[in-house]
Design a protein around this nucleic acid. Structure first.
Lengths: 177, 177
DNA sequence: GCCTCACTGTACAAGTTGCTCAGTAATTTC
DNA sequence: GAAATTACTGAGCAACTTGTACAGTGAGGC
């Protein structure tokens, strides 16, 4: 195990066994880190900050995107800023007959359903949903419950988010491979 | 209720009651949609596509960022492409004494812990974690279980993701306010 | 020793950005 | 009803960035 301090957190790195995914080196990780911190800087500025040639940054970026490591640079929208201030996770049990797909399609029709997974264990599906406030969340849950094929649901509300979604530590960990 | 077809999905819109969050209009929604579809196009190209003046796009973008609706344009990293192909959700029960924060800080030290929420209901916290394969996931779960203050965990593995994280439908819904 | 590969540094045309300014149309305020 | 406010348009301009190409360098594999 290996530890490193960064941004006020201390990261524990466990050295990975082998390389199943894309090979990432330190420069890639620094590039991703830089773009995460200051997304709107261009290729030229990156090359200056990382102290490499512009072509190198361009090539790395192209490769990372081509290999799917960087999926894109889309705008990150904050549902809370749009007025959807409550997040919840709903576990669904669905009817055996019919399977997951029709249910998933109907869930996808609800804008407040932000993410759907099929899962192992007691439930069959896990959704992340948002609502304007607790009462509005009830409306959304009702929409989910009413989806054809859904038999039972159980909801937990997210009260706080001490670690918002992040991938940077993972990138750094992968770069140590 | 109102429905609309887009990208192969049909969205059900429920007309929202009031406006708690930021006011978003149709142009904002189209701008966000455009940038989501083709993130690397510039302001000028946006203005051409949306058929408005460049200054307008610039002003809208500034406003959306200032108000936090658009959090940023960071690179979206795909853990799977880095070799972390398994995602799981871990529900934690933690010791009463000490509270959530120290546990959250220790969880944040594990790179494979991608997201942490405190929650209502049976558990106390919900984490999203990733691992290279199922066996590697066990390693990560063990790291989580070993966190001081964690008493019990229960894990569900994500088998498939019929609806990957998305906010576009929400943006469109909010634009109808 | 030779080949391949990734990186460097340079160059140039074409395009984009940041900024400013004057004009217009719709809405609010007094 | 007049004045003020706000958001948008369209134009201009200097500074900068991008896409692309090309020759040179150094490291590693065979």
């Amino acid at each position: 195990m290996y530890s490193e301090a960064c941004n006020g957190w201390t990261y524990l790195y466990t050295l990975p066994r082998e390389c199943e995914g894309e090979m990432i080196d330190d420069l890639d990780a620094r590039l991703i880190g830089l773009l995460t911190a200051e997304p709107r800087i261009g290729v030229l500025e990156c090359s200056r900050r990382l102290d490499v040639a512009r072509g190198t940054v361009q090539a790395r970026l192209d490769r990372l995107q081509e290999h799917g490591v960087i999926r894109g640079f889309g705008p990150e929208v904050d549902p809370a800023a749009l007025g959807y201030q409550v997040t919840a996770f709903v576990t669904l049990e669905i009817r055996q007959a019919g399977g997951h797909d029709p249910v998933a399609a109907r869930l996808a029709a609800i804008p407040e359903v932000i993410e759907v997974h099929t899962i192992t264990g007691g439930g069959d599906m896990l959704c992340r949903i948002v609502g304007r406030e607790n009462q509005d969340l009830q409306r959304v849950i009702d929409l989910v419950v009413d989806v054809e094929g859904v038999q039972r649901t159980s909801t937990v509300i997210a009260l706080a988010t001490p670690v918002p979604q992040r991938t940077l530590p993972l990138v750094r960990a992968a770069a140590r491979s």
